[in-house]
Simulated scan of single mutants.
Amino acid sequence: MRPRLKALVLATVVGFTASSVAVTAADAQSRERYRVLVCNKSKAKNGAIIGGLGGALLGNTVAGRGNKTEGALLGGAVGAVAGHEIGKGKKKCHYEYRYRR
């Protein structure tokens, strides 16, 4: 390649690179970065439903003769409360970085 053509190609490449860096730096300065705490929704409702069904089945099984209905109701109530409390504690939180324009 001729020296003059090499110089022209090199100048063009350097010019495009410099303009790209300048545009990127200007864009980065115009956007402010901030940190946000993001938490997943609580699983308390699902825990209450699953705990209530499991408690009702267990209460029905454990209850004595003639007390199957009462055992299922009591087991369902206790299971629903326990499932709600267990599900409520299963929140997962993390930080995300976001940009303002």
Results as ranks from 00 to 15, higher is better:
63 A>N: 12
64 G>T: 03
64 G>M: 01
64 G>W: 00
64 G>K: 02
65 R>D: 12
65 R>E: 09
66 G>V: 07
66 G>I: 00
67 N>F: 00
67 N>P: 00
67 N>K: 08
68 K>G: 00
69 T>Y: 02
69 T>A: 08
69 T>K: 13
69 T>M: 09
70 E>S: 09
70 E>I: 00
71 G>D: 04
71 G>M: 02
71 G>E: 02
71 G>S: 04
71 G>R: 02
72 A>S: 10
73 L>S: 05
73 L>H: 02
74 L>F: 05
74 L>I: 15
74 L>M: 10
74 L>Y: 02
74 L>C: 05
75 G>L: 08
75 G>M: 05
75 G>Q: 11
75 G>K: 08
75 G>W: 01
75 G>S: 11
76 G>A: 09
76 G>I: 01
77 A>Q: 04
78 V>M: 09
78 V>P: 05
78 V>I: 14
78 V>Y: 00
79 G>Q: 08
79 G>Y: 04
79 G>K: 11
79 G>M: 06
79 G>W: 03
79 G>S: 10
80 A>T: 04
80 A>Y: 01
81 V>F: 13
81 V>N: 09
81 V>A: 15
82 A>S: 14
82 A>D: 11
82 A>Q: 03
82 A>F: 13
83 G>W: 01
83 G>R: 10
83 G>D: 02
83 G>I: 03
83 G>A: 01
84 H>G: 09
84 H>W: 15
85 E>M: 13
85 E>C: 13
85 E>G: 09
85 E>Y: 10
85 E>T: 08
85 E>N: 14
86 I>W: 07
86 I>P: 02
87 G>H: 04
87 G>V: 10
87 G>D: 04
88 K>A: 15
88 K>E: 12
88 K>S: 14
89 G>N: 15
89 G>S: 15
89 G>L: 10
90 K>Y: 01
90 K>M: 14
90 K>C: 07
90 K>P: 01
90 K>V: 05
91 K>C: 07
91 K>G: 01
91 K>L: 14
92 K>M: 05
92 K>Y: 06
92 K>C: 04
92 K>H: 11
92 K>E: 15
93 C>R: 10
93 C>A: 11
93 C>N: 11
93 C>T: 09
93 C>Y: 07
93 C>H: 10
94 H>S: 11
94 H>E: 10
94 H>F: 11
95 Y>I: 10
95 Y>L: 12
95 Y>G: 01
96 E>Y: 07
97 Y>W: 15
97 Y>P: 12
97 Y>C: 14
98 R>Q: 12
98 R>N: 08
98 R>D: 06
98 R>K: 15
99 Y>H: 14
99 Y>F: 15
